[in-house]
Amino acid sequence: MASRDDNSVRITTAPTSVADDIAGRQRRYLFSMAVRTACVIGAVAVGAGLLRWILVAGAVLLPYVAVVLANAGQRKDDGFDLRSSGSYRELE
């Protein structure tokens, strides 16, 4: 038989709604792709030199970072553990 603590949900650790989670992922991905676009345009605009290669490296690496950030799930943890207590059995 499962204890009551196994089924307890604290509101501080409740996950966000699916719509809010997807919207947040989309915002992070679109921001990363906007930065990538700026890197590509900047690499063309600055001409030859070290800065161009830094911008090209950013444009090449940002898609990977954007996908990892967009797929990162949000896990909430308030740092507290529920106490096991026999007091709830008195109410049953």
Rank of each mutant, 00 (worst) to 15 (best):
A19D: 02
I54E: 11
V60T: 07
L62E: 01
G47I: 00
P63M: 04
R27C: 08
G86F: 04
V40A: 12
S17E: 00
L69N: 09
A43K: 07
S87H: 10
R4D: 05
R83W: 14
D78Y: 01
A19G: 02
M1V: 14
N71G: 11
T13Q: 09
R28V: 05
E90N: 05
V60S: 06
D5W: 12
V44Q: 15
I41G: 05
R28Y: 02
A38T: 07
V35F: 08
A19W: 00
A38L: 10
A19P: 00
S84M: 08
D81W: 09
T12G: 08
A2G: 12
L82H: 09
I54P: 06
V44A: 15
D78E: 05
A23D: 06
A72E: 04
D5K: 14
Q26H: 13
F80N: 13
A45W: 11
T13A: 06
I11F: 12
R25L: 03
A23L: 05
V35D: 07
L91N: 08
S8Y: 12
M33L: 13
W53C: 07
Y29R: 10
D78W: 01
S87Y: 08
A70H: 04
R75I: 12
M1N: 13
Y88F: 11
G86V: 07
W53H: 13
D21C: 02
A23E: 03
V18G: 00
V56F: 05
A48Y: 05
I54H: 11
P63T: 03
S17F: 00
L50A: 09
G42K: 00
A72S: 09
A34Y: 08
V9A: 08
S17V: 01
D81Q: 08
A14M: 14
V18L: 04
R28W: 01
S84T: 10
R36C: 15
S87E: 11
S17I: 00
A2F: 13
Q26K: 14
D5C: 11
F31E: 15
D5R: 15
G42W: 03
F80G: 06
A23Q: 04
N71A: 08
A72R: 06
R52K: 10
A70K: 05
R52D: 02
V65M: 03
A48L: 06
T16E: 13
A45S: 14
A57I: 06
A72V: 03
V68P: 01
R52L: 03
G42I: 03
A57Y: 05
R75F: 07
Q26G: 13
V9Q: 12
V46M: 02
D5N: 14
R83N: 14
D81S: 09
R75M: 09
A38C: 07
V65F: 02
V9Y: 08
T16P: 09
F31V: 15
V68K: 08
G49N: 01
R75A: 11
A2W: 12
F31D: 15
W53P: 01
T37H: 10
D77N: 10
T37I: 09
I54Q: 13
S8V: 10
L82T: 11
T16D: 14
I41T: 12
K76H: 13
I22A: 01
T13K: 04
L61W: 04
R75N: 10
S85N: 10
L51T: 12
P63Q: 06
G58R: 06
